[in-house]
Simulated scan of single mutants.
Amino acid sequence: MHISKTILAPFVAAALSCAAFAGVARAETTDQVVLDKTITKDQAAAALVPAKFNGKLRLAVSAPYAPWMYFDDKNELTGIEIDVVRAVAAKLGVGITFDNLKFEGTIPSLQAGKDDMIAAGMGDNPKREELLNFVNYTTLGLVVLVRDNDTSINGLMDLCGKSVSRINGDVFGPWVEEQLQPKCASLGKKKIDVRTFPDPNAALLAVKSGSVNSEITGLVSATTVLNSKENAGQFRIIRPDNSPRGWKLANGGFAVLKGETELTKAIETALKSMKAEGTLQAIAAHYGYPDVIIDDIVVNMPAPAGDIGNIE
Rank of each mutant, 00 (worst) to 15 (best):
T29N: 04
K272T: 12
G79Y: 05
L280T: 09
E312S: 08
M122F: 08
E129S: 09
K265V: 12
I238M: 00
I237W: 00
I311T: 11
I192W: 00
A60Y: 04
K56V: 15
K52E: 15
A120P: 11
G210N: 01
L16A: 10
D241T: 10
Q179A: 09
V34R: 04
M157Y: 12
Y70T: 11
I238T: 00
N75C: 03
R195V: 12
S186G: 08
A27P: 00
D72P: 04
D31K: 07
R58Q: 13
I192S: 01
S221A: 14
K190G: 07
K248P: 00
T264K: 08
S152F: 07
D291E: 10
K74F: 06
E129Y: 00
K56N: 05
V144Q: 03
V84E: 09
N242Q: 04
R86D: 03
L101A: 02
R239V: 01
A9R: 13
L140W: 13
N133K: 14
P67D: 14
R245S: 12
P126A: 04
K114F: 12
A51C: 03
L92T: 09
V34D: 06
A25L: 02
L101D: 01
T40F: 11
N300R: 02
A20Q: 08
N231T: 13
A87M: 10
R147D: 02
T29H: 03
V292T: 13
N201Q: 14
P174W: 07
D295I: 01
N231F: 15
D241S: 05
S4D: 08
A20V: 03
S221Y: 06
G95T: 14
T224G: 11
S109Y: 12
C160W: 08
G155I: 07
V194T: 10
D150L: 03
P108T: 13
E230V: 04
R166L: 14
P67T: 11
L204N: 14
G79W: 04
G93Y: 08
V34P: 09
D73Y: 07
G123A: 04
T106A: 12
L132S: 01
I216K: 02
K272W: 15
I237E: 01
L57W: 13
M1C: 05
N54I: 05
E230F: 00
A270P: 02
G253T: 07
L59D: 15
M122D: 04
T196D: 08
V33D: 07
I238Q: 00
A63G: 07
T269H: 02
L131A: 15
T223V: 10
L219I: 12
F21G: 02
A222I: 02
K52S: 13
S62T: 15
P240M: 06
R147S: 06
K272I: 15
A303D: 11
